[in-house]
Amino acid sequence: MKVTGVDFKGRDIISIKEFSKKELLHVLAVAAQMERRPDPHLLEGKILAALFFEPSTRTKMSFEAAMYRLGGEVIGFASEKVTSVSKGESLHDSIRILGGYSDVVVMRHPTEGAARVGAEATDVPVINGGDGANQHPTQTFLDLYTIKKAKGRLDKLKVGFMGDLKYGRTVHSLAQALSHFKVEMVFIAPPSLQMPPGILEELNAKGVKFKTIQDLKKGLAGLDVLYNTRIQKERFPDEYEYQKVKGIYTLSEKLIPLFKKDLKILHPLPRVNELSPALDGTSHAVYFEQAKNGVPVRMALLALVLGAVK
């Protein structure tokens, strides 16, 4: 598959903001191809260094699965404690050395900006598997892929976001990525957890139609997609404030009458009490499929940056 003006070979995947609409769509198209017809020899002889300076079972395992499905090998670690960083080595030096052992690096780090430092330290492509509260671009790619697959399109959709919109990096990145498309957005959250003004300004500047709303029931009206996120207790100044919103932001089967018939619900998981298991068996739930989509999307990104597909 070749798309003019899109070249991923050797490219770092650090921030979703760096991708044009054409590039986003190209990754999704390659991911669909990977899901349909994975070539088990595509990355034979290639080594992925999975450098997880903080634990993340799913991101790590889905990257590993993606690499194995394409015939590649994986080296790496899942805790900073086992690395030379614990001996005082700089992140730059660590990545420069470990990058030298592999053809591509995936890194997760608790500090914001760590992935960019990693990308500058090594010549091999670096994929950001999450840098603190900043970016987690492969999550956004798989969110977009899930929406495209569930709805058949990314344009002409009304997408709701609910939960912790202030601190949730997945909602920030997804809103930014969706701003390339004709999407109307509804941000459902208590005022203390609403989308940061900076992001709303960005959306405004791009001409995106959106509204912020506190009432979940009203916010659900007419949605094609709902991206639910966990409200983290520790974000609240006091327990009382948390208890007040906790119950209000639970998506349960009682709300089904308010859903559009073909509403699809996404959630980056893990969930706590904001998403009732009673919805799991309904046609609305696509969150487990969303998690599974992490593999073809990561296969696509690995194959693209290694130049195995165009």
């Binding site: 700089s90 730059h92 608790p110 500090t111 914001e112 900006g113 430092v117 509260a133």
Partner: peptide, 12 residues
């Protein structure tokens, strides 16, 4: 300004 930025944690 971000205390958790890599530039405030390492020599970057």
């Amino acid at each position: 300004v971000n205390p958790n930025c890599i530039t405030n944690k390492e020599d970057v």
